[in-house]
């Protein structure tokens, strides 16, 4: 699975980077984003969901979060 490390990237740059990463993928592709605790994990999942993508999972791991998203749409 494709993984995009967004740790150390602040809002809203992390969201924009996630958006760009999703643009490179085909519909139905599943990607993992590594997000910092705090504002990034509060904002990025909601914003990507707002863009229409499907949220498959969100788990805490060693002080950060792993967000799993399935790309929806072109």
């Amino acid at each position: 699975m494709h993984t995009v490390d967004l740790r150390g990237v602040s809002c809203p740059t992390n969201f924009v980077k996630a958006k760009l990463a999703l643009e490179m993928l085909d519909e139905g592709a599943v990607v993992e984003f590594l997000l910092d605790d705090g504002e990034p994990v509060k904002n990025v999942p909601r914003s990507l969901k707002g863009e229409g993508h499907k949220l498959i999972g969100l788990k805490e791991a060693d002080g950060h979060y792993v967000l799993t998203i399935e790309k929806v749409g072109e």
Partner: peptide
């Protein structure tokens, strides 16, 4: 609910 715990944290 997928038990991510974000609500409790927020």
């Amino acid at each position: 609910c997928i038990s991510c715990g974000l609500c409790a944290k927020s």
